[in-house]
């Protein structure tokens, strides 16, 4: 017997209690944390700009480019971030590193490597897929040849053209 499902009615516009707590927490803790970590935010925003650009310029349906770029961009930024955190967490240190061409080359270069990785892997995967497909195709043709040798050409005809003897009887 079908039982009617008990549907709990939620008043429209009311937020679930968990979400409310998170929102409240962010409102209370967010501003102090933002101001306390301001050099980190500024440094990260400016050093990770290539990743933001990658996200904006990627027009593929899946938008995976920014993941590759951000990954290596972060790897390039990480040593300087550690330096910022452990050797004086100040806005001047952050701006100093950002204005150093060598440091910038490392950070942006790492992001560039991310692009290289993003662009170079699909052809490699494509070649691998081609090889496995060709191997599978060869196997299938061999199976078909074997079936034709054993059962004759009628085995390749569609169902409507020929039926086995047992069905004809």
């Amino acid at each position: 017997m079908a039982q009617k499902k008990q549907v709990r009615k939620v008043p429209q516009g009311a937020k679930p209690p968990g979400k409310l707590k998170v929102t409240l927490g962010l409102l209370i803790l967010g501003p102090p944390l933002f101001f306390f970590f301001l050099p980190t935010w500024v440094f990260l925003f400016l050093s990770m700009l290539p990743s933001v650009v990658a996200f904006v310029v990627d027009r593929t349906p899946y938008r995976y480019a920014w993941v590759s770029v951000a990954g290596l961009n972060l790897a390039g930024v990480a040593p300087y971030l550690m330096k910022l955190w452990f050797e004086g967490h100040s806005m001047s240190t952050a701006l100093k590193m950002l204005s150093n061409p060598f440091d910038l080359i490392v950070m942006v270069g790492a992001a560039g490597l991310g692009w290289v990785l993003h662009l170079s892997l699909p052809p490699v995967v494509g070649a691998w897929l081609d090889v496995t497909s060709q191997r599978r195709l060869t196997q299938l043709r061999a199976t078909q040849r074997k079936l034709l040798d054993e059962w004759g050409a009628e085995v390749a005809q569609p169902d409507s053209e020929e039926a086995p003897v047992s069905r004809r009887r």
């Binding site: 593929t60 899946y62 995976y64 480019a65 993941v67 590759s68 990954g71 991310g114 990785l117 993003h118 170079s120 892997l121 699909p122 052809p123 490699v124 995967v125 494509g126 691998w128 897929l129």
Partner: peptide, 12 residues
């Protein structure tokens, strides 16, 4: 191949 390649690049 494009999709798998991009996924693999992101993961790496």
């Amino acid at each position: 191949a494009m999709r798998y390649g991009h996924q693999a690049a992101g993961m790496i």
